[in-house]
Amino acid sequence: MSGKEPNAIELRDVEKSFGITKVIQTINLKVAQGERHALIGPNGAGKSTTFNLISGYMKPTSGSIQLRGEEIAGLRPFQINRRGLSRSFQVTNVFGNMTVWENLRCAVLWATGQRYAFWKNIDKLPEVRERTARILEDIHLVGRRDVPAGLLTYAEQRALEIGITIAGGANVILLDEPTAGMSHAETERAVSLIRRLTEGRTLLIVEHDMSVVFGLADRISVLVYGQVIASGTPEEIRGNPKVKEAYLGEEAA
């Protein structure tokens, strides 16, 4: 172990049960730092639950979850977020009555050390202002800056969702189906956006669109019935007979 960089995310024997129903059977998963890692699997395999466990939205029944070598299992979501992990949601989850600008600004406040300050004028914080402006520029919503988030188009809301996720400057980014429901052109734009914004960071992504997965990911893990049945490079996953049988079917052959 000594001298070796710890993994960005490491799940060891993580289990999750709701009552007597075991949703996650013992997951073991490693995501190295700087890696773009895709988590794929059929519906109900436990991909979103895995995200919920890593991000603190749910507590694991047992097992260990480490963020850069630090144990985070059982911590609250905001504690995990402050340790440098940020996630997006499959169903758009923004601040609907607030403008695009305010949405992004809320997402940079903690990272710029504002905490719960009630003695500072929010408009007189140059660092907050500049970082918010940069994110706004990055997600190409400058023209929609003053529009309430609830009135954006679906694709714009998805872009804002990603913007909020990366705005805090987290090193580890979890994206839950960022291109779900998008047209082909929108998906392409979203993928190039994700590629650009996660440069130099670690990305764990859940995605159903195989062209996105194989185009974006350095490594892929396959989750079936709450267990990781294979983990490897796109080529290895493509050639893995267990994966073919369980998930990819004929089309991958």
Binding site: S55, G56, R76, P77, F78, N81, R82, S86, R87, F89, N93, V94, F95, C106, A107, L109, W110, A111, Y116, I164, T165, A167, G168
Partner: peptide, 8 residues
């Protein structure tokens, strides 16, 4: 969502 931008 507030929880996931670092606030309690």
């Amino acid at each position: 969502r507030v929880q996931f931008v670092g606030y309690d």
